[in-house]
Design a protein around this nucleic acid. Structure first.
Length: 316
DNA sequence: AGCCTTTGACCAGCG
DNA sequence: TCGCTGGTCAAAGGC
Protein backbone atom coordinates (compact mmCIF):
# COMPACT_ATOMS: atom_id res chain seq x y z
CA UNK A 1 0.00 0.00 0.00
CA UNK A 2 1.09 3.19 -0.40
CA UNK A 3 0.55 3.66 2.98
CA UNK A 4 3.43 5.64 2.64
CA UNK A 5 1.17 8.22 1.56
CA UNK A 6 -0.74 7.76 4.61
CA UNK A 7 2.14 8.33 6.68
CA UNK A 8 3.51 11.65 6.95
CA UNK A 9 7.02 11.49 6.26
CA UNK A 10 9.24 14.31 6.03
CA UNK A 11 12.54 13.81 4.73
CA UNK A 12 15.30 16.18 4.81
CA UNK A 13 18.16 15.13 2.88
CA UNK A 14 21.24 16.98 2.98
CA UNK A 15 24.13 16.81 0.78
CA UNK A 16 26.85 17.73 2.92
CA UNK A 17 29.22 15.20 2.36
CA UNK A 18 28.73 13.26 -0.44
CA UNK A 19 25.70 11.71 -0.62
CA UNK A 20 25.66 9.22 -3.13
CA UNK A 21 28.93 9.59 -4.55
CA UNK A 22 30.16 7.44 -2.08
CA UNK A 23 27.37 5.24 -2.46
CA UNK A 24 29.56 3.07 -4.26
CA UNK A 25 31.86 2.84 -1.51
CA UNK A 26 29.38 1.83 0.93
CA UNK A 27 27.35 -0.58 -0.46
CA UNK A 28 27.19 -0.36 -3.77
CA UNK A 29 23.94 0.31 -4.50
CA UNK A 30 22.12 3.07 -5.66
CA UNK A 31 21.04 5.62 -3.44
CA UNK A 32 18.36 4.46 -1.32
CA UNK A 33 16.89 2.52 -3.85
CA UNK A 34 14.33 0.91 -1.89
CA UNK A 35 12.75 4.02 -1.14
CA UNK A 36 11.37 4.44 2.08
CA UNK A 37 8.19 2.92 2.66
CA UNK A 38 6.63 3.75 5.80
CA UNK A 39 3.40 2.47 6.72
CA UNK A 40 3.22 3.14 10.30
CA UNK A 41 0.69 5.76 10.53
CA UNK A 42 -2.81 5.07 10.15
CA UNK A 43 -4.66 7.38 7.95
CA UNK A 44 -6.69 8.48 10.78
CA UNK A 45 -3.79 10.00 12.40
CA UNK A 46 -2.76 11.86 9.48
CA UNK A 47 -4.26 15.15 9.42
CA UNK A 48 -3.33 15.72 6.00
CA UNK A 49 -4.40 14.49 2.84
CA UNK A 50 -2.36 11.83 1.52
CA UNK A 51 -1.25 12.20 -1.87
CA UNK A 52 1.87 11.15 -3.29
CA UNK A 53 3.25 14.41 -2.58
CA UNK A 54 2.61 16.94 -0.06
CA UNK A 55 -0.71 18.37 -0.54
CA UNK A 56 -1.52 21.80 0.30
CA UNK A 57 -4.72 22.35 2.04
CA UNK A 58 -7.26 24.34 0.22
CA UNK A 59 -6.76 27.28 2.37
CA UNK A 60 -3.12 27.33 1.91
CA UNK A 61 -1.22 28.45 -0.99
CA UNK A 62 2.22 27.47 -1.85
CA UNK A 63 3.26 30.74 -0.64
CA UNK A 64 1.85 29.95 2.66
CA UNK A 65 4.04 27.04 2.92
CA UNK A 66 6.92 29.04 2.12
CA UNK A 67 6.07 31.31 4.83
CA UNK A 68 5.27 28.57 7.14
CA UNK A 69 7.56 28.06 9.97
CA UNK A 70 9.06 25.21 8.33
CA UNK A 71 10.42 27.20 5.67
CA UNK A 72 11.03 30.14 7.75
CA UNK A 73 12.62 28.32 10.36
CA UNK A 74 15.89 29.44 9.48
CA UNK A 75 14.93 32.81 8.83
CA UNK A 76 13.65 33.40 12.15
CA UNK A 77 15.99 31.27 13.87
CA UNK A 78 18.12 33.26 15.95
CA UNK A 79 21.18 32.09 17.50
CA UNK A 80 20.20 31.87 20.99
CA UNK A 81 20.42 29.16 23.44
CA UNK A 82 16.82 29.33 23.84
CA UNK A 83 16.09 28.66 20.36
CA UNK A 84 18.84 26.33 20.35
CA UNK A 85 19.83 27.47 17.08
CA UNK A 86 23.02 29.02 16.67
CA UNK A 87 22.53 29.26 13.19
CA UNK A 88 22.65 32.29 11.35
CA UNK A 89 19.58 33.91 10.48
CA UNK A 90 20.06 33.18 7.07
CA UNK A 91 19.81 29.69 6.72
CA UNK A 92 17.61 28.35 4.42
CA UNK A 93 14.44 28.75 2.94
CA UNK A 94 12.41 26.12 1.62
CA UNK A 95 9.89 26.33 -0.81
CA UNK A 96 7.08 24.19 -1.45
CA UNK A 97 5.84 24.14 -4.77
CA UNK A 98 2.61 22.67 -5.12
CA UNK A 99 2.23 19.06 -4.87
CA UNK A 100 5.49 18.18 -6.01
CA UNK A 101 8.00 19.62 -3.95
CA UNK A 102 9.94 21.43 -6.28
CA UNK A 103 12.05 23.92 -5.11
CA UNK A 104 15.12 24.63 -6.56
CA UNK A 105 17.86 26.43 -5.37
CA UNK A 106 16.50 29.05 -3.49
CA UNK A 107 18.75 31.69 -2.93
CA UNK A 108 16.94 34.52 -2.22
CA UNK A 109 14.19 34.60 -4.10
CA UNK A 110 11.02 33.67 -3.77
CA UNK A 111 10.84 33.11 -0.38
CA UNK A 112 12.97 35.24 1.30
CA UNK A 113 16.01 36.34 1.42
CA UNK A 114 17.93 34.18 3.19
CA UNK A 115 19.77 32.97 0.56
CA UNK A 116 22.25 30.75 1.07
CA UNK A 117 20.71 27.67 1.33
CA UNK A 118 18.98 25.60 -0.98
CA UNK A 119 15.97 23.96 -0.19
CA UNK A 120 14.34 21.90 -2.60
CA UNK A 121 11.76 19.42 -2.77
CA UNK A 122 12.27 17.61 -5.73
CA UNK A 123 9.65 16.65 -7.99
CA UNK A 124 9.56 13.29 -9.26
CA UNK A 125 10.29 14.50 -12.56
CA UNK A 126 13.75 15.34 -11.96
CA UNK A 127 15.66 12.50 -12.86
CA UNK A 128 17.85 13.36 -15.54
CA UNK A 129 21.01 12.95 -13.78
CA UNK A 130 22.44 9.98 -12.33
CA UNK A 131 22.40 9.80 -8.72
CA UNK A 132 26.00 10.38 -8.60
CA UNK A 133 25.70 13.43 -10.66
CA UNK A 134 23.00 14.70 -8.55
CA UNK A 135 24.86 14.22 -5.50
CA UNK A 136 27.81 15.86 -6.85
CA UNK A 137 25.80 18.77 -7.70
CA UNK A 138 24.24 18.83 -4.40
CA UNK A 139 27.52 18.86 -2.86
CA UNK A 140 28.70 21.59 -4.93
CA UNK A 141 25.81 23.64 -4.01
CA UNK A 142 26.22 22.89 -0.48
CA UNK A 143 29.74 23.69 -0.52
CA UNK A 144 29.18 26.88 -2.17
CA UNK A 145 26.70 27.86 0.30
CA UNK A 146 28.81 27.03 3.12
CA UNK A 147 31.55 28.85 1.59
CA UNK A 148 29.39 31.78 1.43
CA UNK A 149 29.32 32.06 4.99
CA UNK A 150 26.62 30.29 6.28
CA UNK A 151 27.48 27.88 8.62
CA UNK A 152 24.55 25.97 8.05
CA UNK A 153 22.41 25.77 5.29
CA UNK A 154 20.50 23.31 3.73
CA UNK A 155 20.31 22.47 0.37
CA UNK A 156 17.69 20.81 -1.28
CA UNK A 157 19.00 19.76 -4.31
CA UNK A 158 16.96 19.99 -7.15
CA UNK A 159 18.90 17.43 -8.52
CA UNK A 160 17.05 15.10 -6.78
CA UNK A 161 18.77 12.11 -5.98
CA UNK A 162 17.10 8.91 -6.33
CA UNK A 163 16.30 9.16 -2.81
CA UNK A 164 14.60 12.28 -3.19
CA UNK A 165 12.59 10.98 -5.89
CA UNK A 166 11.63 8.11 -3.94
CA UNK A 167 10.80 10.13 -1.07
CA UNK A 168 8.68 12.30 -3.08
CA UNK A 169 6.91 9.48 -4.46
CA UNK A 170 6.25 8.11 -1.16
CA UNK A 171 5.06 11.22 0.31
CA UNK A 172 8.03 11.87 2.24
CA UNK A 173 9.24 15.24 2.59
CA UNK A 174 12.82 15.49 2.22
CA UNK A 175 15.02 18.26 3.07
CA UNK A 176 18.63 18.21 2.61
CA UNK A 177 20.43 19.82 5.27
CA UNK A 178 23.91 20.56 5.61
CA UNK A 179 24.93 21.88 8.78
CA UNK A 180 28.28 22.91 9.23
CA UNK A 181 29.61 23.04 12.50
CA UNK A 182 26.89 24.70 13.98
CA UNK A 183 24.32 22.39 13.43
CA UNK A 184 21.36 23.26 12.00
CA UNK A 185 18.86 24.07 14.26
CA UNK A 186 16.36 26.12 12.98
CA UNK A 187 13.61 27.31 14.54
CA UNK A 188 10.94 28.94 13.20
CA UNK A 189 8.67 30.60 15.17
CA UNK A 190 7.96 29.92 18.29
CA UNK A 191 5.09 29.71 19.64
CA UNK A 192 2.99 27.35 19.38
CA UNK A 193 2.78 24.83 21.45
CA UNK A 194 2.41 21.93 20.13
CA UNK A 195 0.25 20.78 17.99
CA UNK A 196 -0.37 17.48 18.68
CA UNK A 197 0.18 15.77 15.77
CA UNK A 198 3.27 16.64 14.40
CA UNK A 199 6.22 14.73 13.93
CA UNK A 200 8.92 16.19 15.70
CA UNK A 201 12.06 16.88 14.45
CA UNK A 202 15.05 17.05 16.29
CA UNK A 203 16.45 13.82 16.74
CA UNK A 204 18.42 13.20 19.66
CA UNK A 205 21.07 12.90 17.35
CA UNK A 206 21.29 16.35 17.93
CA UNK A 207 22.96 15.61 21.05
CA UNK A 208 25.69 14.26 19.17
CA UNK A 209 25.35 16.84 16.68
CA UNK A 210 26.84 19.04 19.05
CA UNK A 211 30.05 17.71 18.18
CA UNK A 212 29.82 19.03 14.86
CA UNK A 213 29.51 22.44 15.80
CA UNK A 214 29.82 24.83 18.30
CA UNK A 215 26.47 24.51 19.20
CA UNK A 216 26.42 22.44 21.83
CA UNK A 217 22.99 22.11 22.10
CA UNK A 218 21.81 22.15 18.92
CA UNK A 219 19.74 19.46 18.75
CA UNK A 220 16.71 19.33 17.64
CA UNK A 221 14.26 17.83 19.41
CA UNK A 222 10.90 18.83 18.89
CA UNK A 223 9.95 18.50 22.40
CA UNK A 224 9.09 14.91 22.18
CA UNK A 225 11.05 12.12 23.59
CA UNK A 226 12.68 9.73 21.26
CA UNK A 227 14.30 6.41 21.69
CA UNK A 228 16.79 5.10 19.28
CA UNK A 229 15.98 1.63 18.17
CA UNK A 230 18.37 1.06 15.41
CA UNK A 231 21.08 2.31 13.24
CA UNK A 232 22.10 1.18 9.87
CA UNK A 233 24.28 2.14 7.07
CA UNK A 234 22.24 2.72 4.03
CA UNK A 235 23.52 2.34 0.64
CA UNK A 236 23.07 5.66 -0.80
CA UNK A 237 24.38 7.35 2.17
CA UNK A 238 27.77 7.72 3.42
CA UNK A 239 26.64 8.01 6.91
CA UNK A 240 24.70 5.62 9.03
CA UNK A 241 21.03 6.17 9.44
CA UNK A 242 19.61 6.24 12.90
CA UNK A 243 16.09 5.17 13.70
CA UNK A 244 14.15 6.76 16.47
CA UNK A 245 10.74 6.14 17.90
CA UNK A 246 8.66 8.42 19.96
CA UNK A 247 8.66 7.11 23.49
CA UNK A 248 5.12 8.11 24.09
CA UNK A 249 2.97 5.09 24.82
CA UNK A 250 0.64 5.27 21.98
CA UNK A 251 2.68 7.28 19.66
CA UNK A 252 4.16 5.51 16.75
CA UNK A 253 5.93 8.37 15.26
CA UNK A 254 9.33 7.53 14.01
CA UNK A 255 12.07 9.50 12.61
CA UNK A 256 15.24 8.59 10.93
CA UNK A 257 18.12 10.72 10.26
CA UNK A 258 21.55 10.52 8.96
CA UNK A 259 24.47 12.32 10.28
CA UNK A 260 27.77 12.87 8.75
CA UNK A 261 30.91 12.12 10.54
CA UNK A 262 31.07 15.73 11.30
CA UNK A 263 28.00 15.38 13.26
CA UNK A 264 26.01 17.22 10.78
CA UNK A 265 22.63 16.01 10.03
CA UNK A 266 22.41 15.19 6.48
CA UNK A 267 18.96 13.88 6.30
CA UNK A 268 15.99 13.59 8.50
CA UNK A 269 12.83 11.74 7.87
CA UNK A 270 9.77 11.82 9.98
CA UNK A 271 7.11 9.28 9.82
CA UNK A 272 3.80 9.91 11.29
CA UNK A 273 2.47 12.55 13.51
CA UNK A 274 2.31 12.81 17.24
CA UNK A 275 -1.10 12.50 18.57
CA UNK A 276 -0.18 13.56 21.99
CA UNK A 277 1.12 16.65 23.61
CA UNK A 278 4.74 17.16 24.14
CA UNK A 279 6.13 15.86 27.33
CA UNK A 280 7.59 18.09 29.88
CA UNK A 281 10.97 19.22 29.06
CA UNK A 282 12.38 17.99 32.15
CA UNK A 283 13.92 14.84 31.19
CA UNK A 284 17.01 13.17 32.10
CA UNK A 285 19.10 14.69 29.61
CA UNK A 286 19.58 18.26 30.06
CA UNK A 287 20.59 18.41 26.58
CA UNK A 288 17.38 16.93 25.75
CA UNK A 289 15.74 19.73 27.43
CA UNK A 290 17.45 22.10 25.27
CA UNK A 291 16.45 20.18 22.43
CA UNK A 292 13.02 20.30 23.45
CA UNK A 293 12.93 23.90 23.26
CA UNK A 294 14.18 23.82 19.88
CA UNK A 295 11.89 21.17 19.01
CA UNK A 296 9.03 23.17 19.99
CA UNK A 297 9.98 25.43 17.39
CA UNK A 298 10.27 22.84 14.97
CA UNK A 299 6.94 21.66 15.81
CA UNK A 300 5.59 24.84 15.09
CA UNK A 301 7.27 24.86 11.98
CA UNK A 302 5.84 21.85 10.71
CA UNK A 303 2.77 22.19 12.50
CA UNK A 304 2.21 25.00 10.37
CA UNK A 305 1.44 22.55 7.86
CA UNK A 306 -0.91 20.22 9.07
CA UNK A 307 1.25 18.82 11.47
CA UNK A 308 2.36 16.41 9.12
CA UNK A 309 5.85 16.41 9.81
CA UNK A 310 8.19 18.63 11.24
CA UNK A 311 11.64 19.29 10.72
CA UNK A 312 13.55 20.23 13.48
CA UNK A 313 16.70 21.80 13.77
CA UNK A 314 17.45 21.32 10.42
CA UNK A 315 17.20 23.88 8.11
CA UNK A 316 14.53 23.60 5.90
C1' DA B 1 15.67 1.70 38.87
C1' DG B 2 14.56 3.25 34.64
C1' DC B 3 15.52 4.72 30.19
C1' DC B 4 18.41 5.16 26.31
C1' DT B 5 22.18 3.82 23.22
C1' DT B 6 24.66 0.46 20.82
C1' DT B 7 25.14 -3.54 17.95
C1' DG B 8 24.08 -7.77 15.63
C1' DA B 9 20.64 -10.53 13.67
C1' DC B 10 16.27 -11.28 11.54
C1' DC B 11 12.41 -10.22 8.52
C1' DA B 12 10.03 -8.22 4.63
C1' DG B 13 9.84 -5.89 0.21
C1' DC B 14 11.67 -5.08 -4.30
C1' DG B 15 14.41 -5.71 -8.52
C1' DT C 1 13.59 -17.45 -7.12
C1' DC C 2 17.61 -15.26 -5.42
C1' DG C 3 20.04 -11.49 -3.78
C1' DC C 4 20.11 -6.96 -1.94
C1' DT C 5 18.64 -3.37 1.00
C1' DG C 6 16.02 -1.16 4.43
C1' DG C 7 13.71 -1.42 8.67
C1' DT C 8 12.86 -3.49 13.10
C1' DC C 9 13.69 -6.42 17.11
C1' DA C 10 16.16 -7.88 20.98
C1' DA C 11 20.08 -8.28 24.27
C1' DA C 12 23.72 -6.03 26.67
C1' DG C 13 25.77 -2.12 28.56
C1' DG C 14 25.93 2.64 30.18
C1' DC C 15 24.21 6.85 32.16
Amino acid sequence: METAADTNDFRLPAPPASACDSADQRSGGGCVGGGARYKLMSPAKLPISRSPYITIPPGLSPTSFLESPVMLSNMKAEPSPTTGSFIKPQTVHGSFLSNSYSATAVSSDAFGERASSFFEFRPPSISNMTSADMKNKMREQSVQLQGNSQSQFQSFSSLSSPKAEMAASSNELSLHIATSGATATTEADDDEQNQTGNPSCGPQASHSDLKGGTASSTTSEDGYNWRKYGQKLVKGSEFPRSYYKCTHPNCEVKKLFERSHDGQITEIIYKGTHDHPKPQPSRRYAAGALLTVQEDRSDKILSGRDGKGRLSNLIY
